[in-house]
Design a protein around this nucleic acid. Structure first.
Lengths: 217, 217
DNA sequence: CGTTGCATTGAAATCCCTCAAGCGAGGTGG
DNA sequence: CCACCTCGCTTGAGGGATTTCAATGCAACG
């Protein structure tokens, strides 16, 4: 990570994106690899009839747009105003050839994305709506926890209900109802639609991982 | 691929597995990387209450068990009798450090798996039962097509309805009903439960990719 | 103060799951 | 050799979770 971070941080290549602005499109040539400097980015795909499925949200420090082939198989858009660093892929691959650490880091980043996708597959294939929303909130908490060390008491959603729904394979109504349900049983409190106070973390975790065998060991 | 294939083909390390035999377990130390020589392998995870989600099926030539961390995050089992080549991970990583082509191939294989997972996420999050089954059949056809060049007219399912269901995020009953439905509209014919004749490939593709934007361009 | 966009809530409909019964092929024992 | 059992698959009926459709609320903004 250190290696790539250094390479990616070239300040000249950092670009600002507005809310909902497209960073790259599905099927677009994959000329760059991207790193979130600030803000939030979403990646996803569309079916022709308009159904949308989001793969992932990327927060500051995350790398996205890393592809095997020569085109992007997902679109990427800014969820919030975001600064994104661009690294020319050809440059990166040349470096990887010379420097084993860069190559290893490219592999690591891809494998990390893969791990997240595998977890998401379990969520989409086998979890109920309530479990999905609980898992989602918990993943946001864990991401935040990684940064600071103070226990997280509140979550600020940077994405709309529509984004959450398309990420979790639900409708916005079901997401809204699930959040209301979590509030009714006093697991969370909704200060407003985008600001959530965490009341009972243990209960949330039970819901989210009922019972992910990995966590119970 | 060529590079790794050569490395992986060391015949001394090929191991036979019986139907349903475990190849590695969830959370087991990831000591080896695996390559299917013959037969079919499934990978997946369990929730504590017994719900199962399969990530992927691997056919002859496919590599699986490639991890970033030091433990397997999925279990792997033989679907049919299978021969699997094992490569010690430490060996592979040492080679990757010295030989850029090996490193690149490791990255390629991980990225290929990632691509498949992303496609599966769309299937699980946004496709109906019928679309999922159609997509599944089509992916089997495409995998077969890759080998020979004659147009595929029949599919032999090596996995049970239960495996298909857990892969597609459905129940066995829904899988069965979807297949019957495909038969009723003359898209397929079921010679028996595991042997499917393809009658209308175009209709199957329409169902599966209605309308995957990628394919419509 | 009306408009616009996003979120919540309710009611009805739909899709898929659950439960249950039946079917067929393969294997075993009488 | 046939009856019987088992296992995997199919089919049906009913129920439940989520979607769909529709109305309302709410906050930001011109």
């Amino acid at each position: 990570m250190i290696q790539l971070t250094a390479d990616l941080a070239l300040p000249g290549l950092s670009m600002p994106f507005a809310r909902n602005e497209e960073i790259f499109a599905e099927e677009e040539p994959a000329e760059f690899v991207y790193k979130v400097i600030s803000g939030v980015v979403r990646t996803g795909r569309l079916l022709a009839d308009g159904r949308r499925q989001l793969n992932a949200f990327y927060l500051a420090g995350d790398v996205f747009g890393l592809e095997r082939g020569d085109v992007h198989r997902c679109a990427a858009e800014a969820v919030t105003e975001a600064n994104v660093a661009l690294i020319r892929r050809s440059t990166l691959e040349r470096q990887a050839e010379r420097n084993g650490l860069v190559a290893q880091e490219l592999w690591n980043l891809t494998a990390l994305t893969l791990e997240r996708m595998e977890q998401h597959i379990m969520l989409l294939g086998r979890k109920s709506a309530l479990e999905r929303v609980a898992s989602f909130l918990l993943s946001l908490i864990d991401a935040k926890q990684g940064d600071g060390c103070a226990p997280v008491r509140a979550i600020d959603l940077s994405m709309s209900r529509s984004d959450v729904a398309d990420y979790l394979g639900l409708t916005i109504e079901t997401v809204s109802r699930s959040l209301s349900q979590l509030e009714r049983v006093k697991i969370i409190a909704l200060a407003n639609a985008r600001h959530i106070n965490l009341l009972d973390r243990k209960a949330l975790k039970n819901l989210a991982t009922l019972g992910d065998a990995l966590r119970l060991v």
